[in-house]
């Protein structure tokens, strides 16, 4: 049911733009106004969310440590997984953000007769996640050739690497294949695995389907139903120069792609996709383990009612005396 809702949602978006551009000729709305507004919502939304997070302080020093602490000089400490200083934290965060270190650790539990519990390592989620995110990033960077003239060198470089296999015309990008594979894996595991299906919400399917629709529309445009790319780039550049002009005959598929991207931009700041920003701020990962060496300050550290020694001694005075223990007040 949740899957159907999400599917209907994405199809409805496609229908809207198809009718809007195909029937009602609203090229300017879908080609200029909506993308610009979406980009604004995206930018403002992300800043709003990050500020909201940042305004809540980090009262306590709560890193999750994985590996040996730095204590005695002759015990080798795990500098990457149990960082002591800023550089260690940066390295740990880099491993997490670029290589998904924690997911790499993933295991799968199996209960056998006996009872005997066995823990197998499982890397599929790590691989699927890594493929998806890296492909997404590379594809995004490749798109800079539509945004800037002349095309920046790093874009050309990435394009060259991505098209390394030189298969077909136009040249096949491996990231296009990878992202389709990864998205399929991420989507179908939510359906096939009973546990994951149980925990999945509409939002989980919707995000995957929306991104899939963007990817598929992009791939169709590139390899199958070509659109007028020169005209598309003209449109984009005209927006960036604040004199938007909609060229004739770019092709419907382009508008579908652009509208879905706009939807993603709007959806992003209000959804779980904000994990992109949140991962940087997670206090269990971005703090060092030096809390006994350097004092962490809590900005709202409130006074609390404590039981003082004097109160304690007053209450137990005779017992303390009877036991022959020293007293502050005789």
């Amino acid at each position: 049911m949740k899957i159907i809702y999400s599917l209907i949602g994405v199809l409805a978006l496609i229908l809207i733009v198809a009718l809007g551009v195909g029937t009602a000729d609203l090229q300017y709305l879908f080609g200029v106004i909506i993308p610009v507004l979406a980009a604004l919502v995206f930018g403002v939304g992300i800043i709003y969310r990050v500020i909201k997070w940042a305004r809540s302080p980090v009262p306590f020093h709560i890193p999750t440590t994985c590996g040996q602490q730095k204590s005695l000089p002759w015990i080798k400490s795990a500098t990457l997984e149990n960082p002591q200083g800023r550089w260690g934290v940066i390295a740990r965060m880099a491993l997490e953000i670029f290589l998904f270190r924690s997911l790499f650790r993933n295991t799968r539990v199996e209960l056998r007769d006996g009872p005997r519990l066995a823990y197998g390592t499982t890397k599929y989620l790590w691989l699927g996640g890594l493929l998806f995110h890296w492909s997404f990033l590379i594809i995004l960077l490749r798109h800079f050739r539509f945004f800037v003239e002349p095309v920046p060198f790093f874009v050309l470089f990435i394009q060259r690497i991505d098209g390394f296999f030189q298969v077909g015309v136009p040249i096949l990008y491996v990231t296009d294949i990878f992202i389709l594979l990864a998205l399929s894996y991420l989507f179908f595991r939510r359906i096939v695995s009973p546990k994951i299906r149980y925990i999945s919400l509409i939002a989980d399917y919707f995000a995957l389907l929306l991104i899939s629709a963007i990817v598929i529309s992009g791939i169709l445009m590139r390899y199958f139903w070509k659109v007028d790319l020169i005209a598309a780039k003209e449109l984009v550049l005209s927006i960036f120069s604040f004199h938007p002009v909609v060229p004739e005959g770019i092709g419907l598929l382009f508008y579908i792609h652009l509208f879905l991207v706009s939807c993603l931009l709007v959806y992003f700041p209000m959804s779980k996709l904000m994990h992109m920003g949140g991962v940087f701020l997670s206090p269990t990962r971005n703090l060092s383990n030096g809390s006994r060496a350097r004092r962490h300050v809590n900005p709202w550290n409130p006074p609390v009612k404590v039981h003082t020694y004097e109160e304690w001694e007053d209450e137990f005075h005779d017992l303390i005396k009877g036991a022959g223990l020293p007293l502050d007040k005789e």
Partner: peptide, 13 residues
């Protein structure tokens, strides 16, 4: 607690 806010917002399930 930033931890709470972040943990409420970013889980991707």
């Amino acid at each position: 607690f930033r931890s709470l806010r972040i943990f409420m917002d970013i889980c991707v399930r």
